[in-house]
Design a protein around this nucleic acid. Structure first.
Lengths: 216, 216
DNA sequence: TGGTCACCGATCGGAACTCGATCATCGCGG
DNA sequence: CCGCGATGATCGAGTTCCGATCGGTGACCA
């Protein structure tokens, strides 16, 4: 089991399109629609996004939006899931580029990936890493950070030889929750990312992970 | 300056009603509308709330909703602000009932108040303590936790004699951000509040505050 | 008691979403 | 290799539903 397995284990059906693309132009169209949705959220926020804005920004027709997404909320959910998957891919990229030696290295890579998402993915600060589009239909099993934490604990145990008394997944879930919240804070303070706030995120997460396990 | 000053310093105009109530029935109606909005968010989520649902649930007419709120998002913003204010009031209540001796006591009271909000205030787990309705029109000065942190730092310095090298407000802002995120997690895991997750929130916040200051 | 506040719901504009017509792509058979 | 037909993709007018308004009526309070 490698870091790459983080991705397949964490995806849900909640943000998938209604018709899986067959032709290349269809795949490209979906990406364009989600790029458009991201840009609209970055500009006006989640609540004010309309499907007409998305269609217009994507250079498509309203009917094309509804070919792939059953409704407005499905567009937001797909955007959220795409962001989540992209975060995972960047994380895996970094973890495979510079194999971590410690848990702290692992989370350092996750923070780097998440900072990059906030900087490169319009609207990510609004949509964040999480579940707010899906709430209240989320529980401890389906929450975004929980979907990563279990696999990550398994992989970290195996790859780094970290002992797991059963609490590692919970601790990672907490660390991911804190990471997401503090990076949103860093990008709310400064849309380019407040460096002190990012540094503080690193310190808080590292400090937490360095402690002896607490029941999660 | 007392803990009670936390409240006046943290409020914004962003969630205020369009017509301030004059008659008692008007105040009661606004409360009923916001109670209704909370119930609807708890059931269907933020995105699916409609003003018709709010009117119906409140036993009012659609025109009554628009007497007090210019639009749908203003209803959500008012609900969010009311939650935030109620959290502050519960916090101040607890802090005045049992005067804290340490920063940890202060945050313990804040956690108790926030847990109580999640339990007693429908929809609070969706709307949380934060700014998501207002995003992206939020910055480091207007963010919810930042609006508390400055006053709290001043009060804690004065009341508890805690030394402040200028970083206390930032540290409190971080602690509040973490507190909010980890309690949302606790109530996502279990809608009654997962006790282990709540305990973990206490430990993480206490652990962070016990450390030597890090630039925020 | 009268002026002001509060409420209602019919109405209209705008957003969400549908569906039938049309266009584009691709694989297969000649 | 090319033409054709089946399938996929797109569009936007039309329909439905939601957001928001406004004029008429009722309630409150000084």
């Amino acid at each position: 089991m490698t870091f790459n397995d983080l991705i397949s284990g964490a995806m849900t059906s909640a943000g998938q399109v209604r018709n899986e693309p067959v032709q290349a132009r269809s795949s490209e169209r979906i990406d364009a629609l989600l790029d458009a949705a991201s840009a609209v959220v970055a500009e006006v926020g989640i609540e004010r996004l309309t499907t007409a804005m998305v269609a217009e920004r994507a250079g498509a027709s309203i009917g094309t939006v509804y070919r792939y997404f059953p409704d407005r909320i499905a567009v937001l959910a797909a955007m959220s899931l795409r962001g989540f998957e992209r975060f995972l891919r960047k994380s895996v990229e970094k973890l495979e580029e510079h194999p971590p030696a410690t848990v702290d290295d692992v989370f350092s890579a996750l923070i780097d990936a998440c900072v990059q998402m906030h900087r490169d993915e319009p609207g990510f600060t609004s949509i964040r890493l999480g579940d707010q589009i899906a709430l209240p239909a989320v529980d401890g099993g389906t929450a975004a950070s929980a979907r990563i934490a279990g696999s990550l604990a398994t992989i970290v145990s195996a790859e780094l030889g970290v002992a797991d008394d059963g609490s590692l997944a919970g601790r990672f879930d907490i660390a991911l929750t804190v990471l997401d919240a503090l990076l949103v804070r860093a990008f709310v303070i400064d849309s380019a990312g407040d460096e002190q706030a990012i540094a503080a995120c690193r310190a808080v997460v590292a400090g937490y992970l360095a402690e002896a396990p607490v029941a999660a």
